[in-house]
């Protein structure tokens, strides 16, 4: 494949962002347009470097890594917990969780409530306050393109700064399917020929 590097004007920027774990979504208009236009070229270029450039139809590009560094793994776990806890929170408050997840602005107040409600989970992540949740998770989400910082438009906290989740969060929702519920012993069909022992024998 012929790749004209001159056409890939934002290569340096895109490379830097994607490789460091950033998810480019439609919000990043310039980068997204460039990637969208030269998707094959970028994919070929990245695969030559040993990276898998993935495009998700829900509107984001990212580099698919086979494994994370220890630190990134920890961050990713914290993000997963936060996203799932938010879904719980919205559902409990009578919102449609999926819509609320992407529409609502997560203010300090919401952070406080989720940390309070799920203290036993956040405790495992060594997060015990809204400030820590903001520092350890939401700021990290900003850096990885999972969220943007914006003002809240709701009446009760109008103008407050908060975080709004972006499309790449779907990666965590997809992961839900993979986390197998109940790792109990699987139930294959009983092997034929297995001795049938009844209670009577046991009584002896």
């Amino acid at each position: 494949m012929q790749i004209d590097l001159l056409e890939l004007t934002l290569l340096q920027d895109i490379n830097k962002k994607l490789v460091s774990g950033y998810h480019i979504s439609e919000q990043d208009v310039q980068l997204w347009q460039q990637l969208d236009q030269y998707q094959d070229e970028y994919a070929a270029l990245f695969s030559g470097l040993g990276y898998r450039l993935k495009h998700d139809a829900r509107g984001y590009f990212y580099i698919d890594a086979d494994d994370s560094t220890v630190n990134m793994g920890k961050i990713s776990r914290a993000m997963a917990v936060t996203i799932y806890v938010l879904i719980e929170y919205y559902a409990d408050n009578g919102f449609d969780p999926l819509r609320a997840l992407f529409e609502k602005v997560i203010t300090e107040e919401i952070m406080q409530q989720v940390v309070q409600n799920q203290y036993h989970l956040f405790e495992q992540l060594e997060i015990t306050s809204a400030a820590e949740l903001k520092r350890d998770v939401f700021n990290r989400m900003l850096r990885n393109g999972f969220a943007t910082e914006t003002q809240s438009f709701e009446e009760h906290d109008l103008g407050q700064m908060g975080f709004k989740l972006l499309a790449p969060v779907y990666r965590y929702l997809d992961a839900l399917d993979e986390i197998q519920p109940h790792e109990s012993i699987k139930q294959p069909a009983p092997t034929p020929g297995q001795t049938e022992l009844t209670g009577a024998e046991f009584d002896e």
Binding site: S20, G21, Y62, S68, M72, G73, S76, N144, I179
Partner: peptide, 15 residues
């Protein structure tokens, strides 16, 4: 948390 999603954690590329 760790035991539950150890296998399925979303991998992020990093610096």
């Amino acid at each position: 948390i760790e035991q539950t999603i150890a296998q399925h954690v979303v991998h992020l590329s990093s610096d």
